[in-house]
Design a protein around this nucleic acid. Structure first.
Lengths: 220, 220
DNA sequence: AACGTTATTAGAATTTAATTCTAGAATATT
DNA sequence: AATATTCTAGAATTAAATTCTAATAACGTT
């Protein structure tokens, strides 16, 4: 009985977590390759034609896979989008954590978050455009679940990272649930406008500015 | 030759503009009512089932209209979403301008923008959820065009409103294209999380905080 | 290296949903 | 009242997503 595979090619390992003890399903190299081909093709299609206008058949021909293969690996069109979304988030999260490792003050941390955010978007505009564009919809049960978990884990990681500085009074004491919004909200909004062509100046040009602004908001 | 009607029930009149001199097309009362019924039904459906899962047939039965009627008035499913989107934006823009009229300092203006933004979302959560959820996609040529114009007009309005204060040095002198992002970015991000259920505390509870934060960023 | 098992691929068949079309009813215009 | 236009209905069509059946390839086992 063929079963839609769910474990996609995970690139990052959640920092603190240990490997699940599971009854290892065999994962074939060719499978991962095909899945990646499909995801890449899908992103190309989404970028070129927009999410709504991208049909399964387009992804099929672009990826060289067959309909059967597509559905075997992902189960639905939505799931392809989901996977792309999740992959993007993971990629970004990982990068952010890496950046934070080199920071040793509240100010450095705050600025690193904003900077990393902007850089990721600048370097992966297609991916970012897709993620912004598909927000909300397009998440199946399972993936929605996983996204929440990931978000929460990420959130907790950040919280832990900042706690010492907070305790030391190096950071303004807002309710924590709001930190993320204060930090990346402005950059995110500008990014959206830039990605959609409504703003000309590249996001990159304003990185410094958004970093400064964020720090100004959060400095004690 | 029946033609898809394009002039939807506009609630706000762009402030500075005069009425177009057009060769008035007759607009029937019943027509507007039906269009509104359809839009309202559509919003209900989007809220209840999500945008992607809402079918034409669902909107049809919910609105009591026929397929023919639906297509006569809007021309496509996308166009229904577009109209809803536009209507929301207009509603919000109008409200914001009204609020700004009572402000007489940079600080008042800045805070009014953030406050109005938050209040509109808090009072129209379904509408807001839809707008955030449908971002980007779902705009037809014509409407895309109109949205850009509206945005630009709104933008210009804000710019004009703030210029005197900027000249008087009551406001930090950032590039103007970034003001909007600095102002509402944080509130917008939090709103998104709240609307999707990822954050519990209602946006309303943080209005003060976002206002203060915005002013802190923009104060000279 | 032959065998059985399971994963993968292919593409035809089916189902579901969006859109178009044709004709008739309602409303306005002369 | 005659005519033109807009609006409504629902059947017919088209397009796209998904399911299904069978064939092929990869893998572990012997």
């Amino acid at each position: 009985m063929p079963k839609t595979s769910t474990d996609s090619n995970i690139r990052s390992l959640p920092a603190g977590e240990s490997l699940p003890p599971k009854t290892a399903k065999p994962v074939r190299a060719k499978t991962l390759k095909r899945k990646d081909q499909i995801l890449e093709a899908a992103l190309r299609c989404f970028t070129a034609h927009g999410i709504a206008a991208t049909t399964i058949d387009l992804i099929r021909s672009e990826s060289g896979a067959s309909v059967g293969s597509l559905y075997h690996h992902f189960g639905s069109k939505e799931a392809i989008a989901s996977a792309l979304y999740m992959q993007g988030m993971e990629d970004h999260f990982l990068r952010l954590r890496t950046a934070l490792n080199d920071c040793h003050s509240a100010e450095q941390g705050v600025k690193a978050i904003v900077k990393t955010y902007c850089e990721w978007i600048s370097e992966n505009p297609d991916w970012a455009r897709f993620i912004f564009g598909s927000r909300g919809e397009a998440l199946s049960e399972e993936q929605e679940q996983k996204l929440r978990q990931d978000n929460k884990a990420h959130f907790t990681y950040l919280q832990d990272w900042f706690r010492p500085y907070l305790d030391a009074g190096e950071l303004k004491d807002y309710p924590f649930s709001i930190y993320h919004s204060l930090l990346v909200g402005p950059a995110q909004d500008y990014a959206k406008h830039w990605l959609s062509g409504r703003q000309k100046k590249p996001l990159r040009d304003y990185i410094e500015l958004f970093c400064e602004a964020a720090w100004k908001t959060l400095a004690p």
